[in-house]
């Protein structure tokens, strides 16, 4: 077979794969339904919260090993690497499903993005500490991540209890 034909076929199949893959993912995940988008955000938050819980238990000396902390940090890193526009899409403020996000989050979007992006350096320090396996260093880095979370929770979350 002519190599140009092979290349064209390969490129086409990759494109088709990408289109189907991403389109399919998007459709399966939310279908653009605001309630589903809120649910998806809650999953992201739960994933980070679960990681923080594991690390806190280690810091308090209650449970877990350095390996558990590393796995927890990986989960937090993955969640916090998401695009803030994907985690906080328009139309998902309080009033949509059980959203706790204040409308001010979108009114002050650059600030919200700044807060979200603040998670990355804090999480990087936590990764470093987890890899070193030093409890005091992990405790300090945990405080840094908590502060980054608190920035947004202080300004933009209205907790319903």
């Amino acid at each position: 077979m002519d190599s140009r034909v092979v290349n064209a076929l390969a490129a086409g199949s990759v494109a088709a794969f990408l289109y189907l893959g991403f389109g399919g993912l998007g459709a399966a995940a939310t279908d653009g339904d605001p309630a589903a988008l809120v649910k998806q955000r809650e999953q992201t938050m739960k994933s980070m919260g679960g990681g923080l819980q594991t690390i806190a238990k280690f810091v308090k000396g209650e449970a877990g090993s350095a390996a558990d902390v590393q796995a927890a940090v990986a989960a937090i890193t993955e969640a916090s690497s998401k695009d803030p526009a994907v985690v906080f899409p328009q139309g998902t403020a309080i009033g949509t499903a059980d959203s706790d996000a204040k409308p001010e989050l979108w009114q002050n979007w650059p600030k919200a993005v700044e807060y979200w992006n603040g998670l990355k350096p804090a999480t990087a320090k936590l990764t470093e500490a987890a890899n070193a396996g030093d409890r005091a260093q992990i405790a300090q880095a945990l405080q840094g991540v908590s502060k980054a979370c608190a920035n947004c929770h202080e300004d933009f979350r209205q907790k319903k209890q």
Binding site: M48, G49, L52, Q53, K147, C149, H153, R157, K159
Partner: peptide, 16 residues
Amino acid sequence: ETGLTPEGDVVGNAMA
């Protein structure tokens, strides 16, 4: 010290 609850949440609003 950190604002972290036992459930892994981080307190917000006035407590933050």
